[in-house]
């Protein structure tokens, strides 16, 4: 068994939460102290059992008025797959023009998400 400490990020109250976890193959929460609401508890469960994250990065643009376009996931991905998703993002090259929301990559590393542009890029003059 191990103990993990969290600061809850669900609301600005930022409650400190201490969790005791059974360290079997799939973690089971045995005890939570500190969370003052149901949402906080749900969040801790999610954080321990299957933490999900959004990530942001950049992709190379050719023929645009800038050399990089910022991108992000439009749905959260499992924390453990971030590096794999990054590997795929690094391979992407897009051709200008680009609009906010344009999909530059679908289902990277098998994740249920799209990588979308977060800035628009005009064609180079």
């Amino acid at each position: 068994m191990s103990t993990k400490e969290f600061t809850c990020v669900v609301c600005p109250n930022g409650c400190p939460i201490v969790v005791n976890i059974d360290d079997d193959e799939t973690p089971v929460i045995t005890h939570i102290e500190g969370s003052t609401c149901k949402k906080g508890e749900e969040w801790v469960h999610q954080e321990i059992e299957n933490p999900m994250r959004t990530i942001s990065s950049s992709v190379v643009v050719t023929g645009g008025d800038c050399i990089l376009a910022s991108v992000r996931t439009n749905r959260p991905i499992p924390l453990g797959r971030i590096m794999k998703v990054m590997e795929e993002i690094k391979q992407v090259t897009v051709i200008a023009p680009l609009a906010i929301g344009d999909v530059v990559l679908r289902n990277p590393a098998g994740c249920d998400t799209e990588i979308v542009a977060t800035r628009s890029v005009a064609k180079a003059q």
């Binding site: 959004t54 942001s56 950049s58 910022s70 992000r72 906010i100 977060t118 800035r119």
Partner: peptide, 17 residues
């Protein structure tokens, strides 16, 4: 380029741009 902007203004997590 990270997200977390707009949670108050637009009720969604946007990147800076």
């Amino acid at each position: 380029i990270h997200d977390g902007f707009g949670l108050h203004e637009f009720k969604e997590a946007l990147s800076g741009p």
